[in-house]
């Protein structure tokens, strides 16, 4: 990992927390620990961590409930469940709900580290994709209403002349709008603009 990744450990067993902390430290990762779901949720804002290792069975709110709460809060941090009790229905439900992975004790340290790295990698990709989308949304919202109209026609495959006829404006005006759309969106071809529209969920 290029930057020091940050792992959050939520487990009521102090010995487990400590063992994980030491392992992660030795592997060059930062970590923070919480002894319960409530302790974690008491934070004012979601901690900036790359992955959460979550114990299923804990007194008070258990790991599954906390995972549901994180989903309700629209958290994107990947969650790896760790449990001493291999339970297929529980594991499958966790994955179907969107948990990144599920690990049954006892496990090899290497196995855990592999899963942590995979989760971190995916989280970084997700964040990058979200940032790109946000930037694209920003560019799209900077278009004027007329430019948006022209963009819709361009991505639908209209020629300048046809856009001009449809919107009842001169072909020269269409050209100007068109070049502004391409410039503002940062698209160097219609194909790129069509892909951008797809990413934005815009239909022509």
């Amino acid at each position: 990992m290029s930057e020091r990744a940050h792992v959050c450990i939520i487990d009521d067993d102090e010995a487990v927390r400590e063992a994980l902390r030491v392992l992660l430290f030795a592997e060059g990762y930062q970590s923070c620990q919480f002894a319960s779901a409530d302790e974690f949720l008491a934070l004012e804002s979601e901690p900036e961590v790359d992955v959460i290792l979550l114990d299923i069975r804990m007194p008070g709110m258990d790991g599954m409930e906390l995972h549901k709460e994180l989903i309700a809060r629209k958290s994107k941090i990947p969650v790896i469940f760790i449990t001493g009790h291999g339970d297929i229905p529980l594991a499958v439900a966790a994955i179907q709900r969107g948990a990144f992975d599920f690990l049954t004790k006892p496990f090899e340290n290497g196995e855990l580290m592999e899963k942590i790295d995979a989760a971190i990698q995916r989280y970084r990709e997700t964040r990058e994709a979200l940032e790109e989308l946000e930037e694209l949304q920003g560019r799209y919202s900077s278009l004027t209403a007329r430019e948006t109209d022209v963009m819709m026609k361009i991505i639908a495959g209209y020629s300048n002349k046809k856009v001009a006829n449809t919107l009842n404006i001169s072909p020269r005006t269409v050209e100007i709008h068109r070049s502004r759309v391409m410039e503002k969106m940062g698209a160097d071809s219609v194909a790129v603009l069509v892909r951008m529209a797809g990413a934005l969920g815009i239909e022509s």
Binding site: G86, D87, I88, A91, Q96, D101, T104
Partner: peptide
């Protein structure tokens, strides 16, 4: 079977609809 938790997890992650024990 019950012993196949990891296999169940992997298969569902890879797109299986479900894994019944």
């Amino acid at each position: 079977h019950q012993t196949e938790v990891q296999s169940a997890v992997d298969l569902v992650r890879m797109g299986a609809e479900d894994f019944l024990e």
